[in-house]
Write a protein that binds this DNA or RNA. Sequence first.
DNA 1: CTGAAAGCGCTAACAT
DNA 2: ATGTTAGCGCTTTCAG
Lengths: 339, 339
Amino acid sequence: MSALSDVARLAQVSKATASRALSGNGYVSELTRNRVVSAAATIGYVVSSNASSLVTGRTRNVGVVIPHINRWYFGEVLEGIESALIAAGYDLTLYRLSEDETERRRLFEYFLMRKRVDAVIAVSIELTPHEVRLLRSLDKPIVGIGGPGDGIAALSIDDVAAAALVTNHLISLGHTRIMHIGGSRQKEMDFRVHTQRQAGFRKAMEAAGLPCGTDAFRAADVSMQGGFAAALAALADPRSRPTAIVAGSDEVAIGTIVAARQLGIQVPSQLSVIGIDGHELSAMFGLTTLAQHPNAQGKMAVDLVMDELLQRPGAPAPTWHAYPVSLEVRDSTTAPSVE
Amino acid sequence: MSALSDVARLAQVSKATASRALSGNGYVSELTRNRVVSAAATIGYVVSSNASSLVTGRTRNVGVVIPHINRWYFGEVLEGIESALIAAGYDLTLYRLSEDETERRRLFEYFLMRKRVDAVIAVSIELTPHEVRLLRSLDKPIVGIGGPGDGIAALSIDDVAAAALVTNHLISLGHTRIMHIGGSRQKEMDFRVHTQRQAGFRKAMEAAGLPCGTDAFRAADVSMQGGFAAALAALADPRSRPTAIVAGSDEVAIGTIVAARQLGIQVPSQLSVIGIDGHELSAMFGLTTLAQHPNAQGKMAVDLVMDELLQRPGAPAPTWHAYPVSLEVRDSTTAPSVE
DNA sequence: CTGAAAGCGCTAACAT
DNA sequence: ATGTTAGCGCTTTCAG
């Protein structure tokens, strides 16, 4: 493995000049730069990021903390972050937030503290005050996706409003027996997202004077399987069956649709289902959904990080960035059929 | 940010002793070790991995190169790798292999060469000889998932055998009009996987004396949407319709099932579908599948890496590790119905 | 068992 | 525009 001194020797300049020529910092004559660059190329020199980071304090690496990898929304966010980082010349170190308490502490107290990252992006994670304090002590940019809260810069849609919006869509079609299948209050690692969506559902139902008691809600695992299982139970009895369902996420919605079809229920003529997220499979299942764009959110988070990284002593970063959502109706919801 | 010298001062020992106490290398009396450890704890000291790596040459970080993040198989592999690495105290730097030529070169020639990783895990990637040479020049462990080939240690199922197995399963049920919907020869970033599966299908069909010309194959994008679209076309005409389908992956299989149902075809009574991979949604869709365990494969790859990392000057690593597969039949395939 | 000292490979003043 | 020098924070001989 060749070092900078090898390049310097070959190009007959000092290490300092070689460094300047290669990094682009400081003045180097066109001529020597070329000599240095070609010398580096011939011996296949690549800077040791460790040595470089040690002296500059910058690692060109950002840590991403995310609760799941293999769920559509999270995968999309991660992809968005990855492309944006690579484009900016940054590495991405991936940390999946484990549900295990000890593991989680180890992540924050050891892995993230090793001076390995220039910034942290936390996706859909509710940080404890202690964790915020730790991250803050690093004095590095931290941006959250799926906020707001915790007092760190965050980026998200307004989940209460989103859920209210989709619920109102069904109400405006004339549905009155509407049910919400969504994430439970339990697994709160998901940043209150599902509690907020549930709140939005309630709000819309109450505003319309429709019932939203315990009958109108069923908890599900936030996944296709979860939606499937919950819907199978919820739709079993034809007499108590709702005419429309607000799903806590598109995955739950898709599970619901599959379950409904398996029960012989026509979708959407006998049951309208609406979801939130803009899942890539929504068209395939004829699902109406309120699209957010997780990939773009990932990129946007990287933009925020880069901004802070470049103008560090700038104005205090704004705390909450609303993210635009758009309602994509795909001709799949209908008015309730007259029975 | 406190440094080792701070700990040393607080504990009234030299930096050398502090280092030994904290890292566990070399003799330190029980008593001083405790003093050092508690000193470190009180000021919240965590080693700077850069400084440490600079001198030791070890980074406790492994690079993972993967073509997709948001596909079930890859997500599972990634999760498996992530947990195993974290458990071993290693970081994971994620690189998604872009289809763009320039980006790909930049990844191999710049990102991976910065002495940032102790090892590389390449998932379902067909490396060019040049890339293999580059990686080899790092003199670090490299393990592939989804091989064999390229002359690096790899780990995979035998895709030809797997496809032949599922095809034979359908043949043994009495099906004669069997079609294969699978990945095209084009997108070869996926490590020949789909060409091999196609070969396995052919092999089984030919051995049974069944037709496997162009009518028996349809190319699809390897995704649910791809399977959906391809199946919609393939199943449109009731007269030429097959009675069974071998899908190139479970995602394609699920797309096929959804399409079939949309066309009013009963699955499995009028159409048997069989997939490969063991997708978590297979049960929900009543899909028969040949399960491989991507999560476990990820962990296994990490094991291989750790083995090599620990006993570096050991025997040359074996080149191909077969991975066990199991046929999970879920009561969903049937004999062809008599028409 | 512990301390002193020499770097790992690089960058950033500071001179020139 | 280029070279000299002094570290970044840590580990590791080498002496004691």
